[in-house]
Amino acid sequence: MRLKALGATLVTVPITLFGLVLVTFLIGRVVPIDPVLAIVGDRAPQEVVERARLELGLDRPLIEQFLRFVVQIASGDLGRSVMTANPVTQDIARFFPATFELATVAIILASLVGVPLGVLAAVRQGGWLDQSVRLFCLAGHSLPVFVLGLLSLLLFYAKLGWAPGPGRQGIAYEDMVDVRTGVLTVDALLAGDWGAFWDALAHLAQPAGVLAFFSLAYIARMARAFMLAELSSEYVTTARAKGLSETRIIWRHAFRNIAVPLVTVLVLTYAGLLEGAVLTETIFSWPGLGQYLTVSLLNADMNAVLGATLVVGLIYVVLNLFADLLYRLLDPRVR
């Protein structure tokens, strides 16, 4: 029964992705920016412009362009980006690890802070601690993330000097560690270069911190909600009656039960972060997928936009599926 449901869900994945490609393609064709501009610039003579148009196949009927593109994707070729002059797959292999690294550190930070805060708030429901946690978490979610980023740079970089400035690594480490995974911290560790590792981590601190602060509200809110539901259940009352210590009840019993729904919440937040945070990336000069997508879009570099959207969509769908699966298989209450 459960497997059958899973099978049905799996079938929907390609359909969703196809829909994604179709919508992206249509948007790309409606955007009133001439894709040829990105290749030849504003000043090229007309014949160069027209030749570029032919090379892109833009003279063909829309439906033919679309089918060509689908066939091309199906063979694993995402085409070439005109902005970077590289194959889109190669670009994604460079930009995605940066986003991945940022999102991963951010989600770790957010859960490490958000979950305990949420649980605490639930335990002290209605008290001043609950209210302060709520205020703190919501504060992070009430400012545009680019303002948060600028303020953070201003404070931690310019005024206090605790954190390095924008960018992924210090100048001294630029191009010094072999790229294996593209995730700088991991590459540095693989190379056994501690200096580079700490440098990369230090550069991550601010953007990841900002993203984490921004995601905190949702995570803490959900943790609080799950915990409250759990604390009002019968077995907690029983356990209290038996005289078990409150700490034990909360962390040993209740927390174990909310772990699974909490993980699904975290996975979904993570999926959101992996889309690439354009605004954070811009402020911190972080060469991630969000920036890549935005720049490509505003230059009508459609191969890049389609490729990157597809990858982001795929990740989103897969993580969703994973969360779904986790929930179905592990949560004792769903059974």
Partner: peptide, 11 residues
């Protein structure tokens, strides 16, 4: 280095 934001360049 590509830095899009002028405030970040100034800092």
């Amino acid at each position: 280095r590509h830095m899009l934001d002028s405030s970040a360049q100034l800092l």
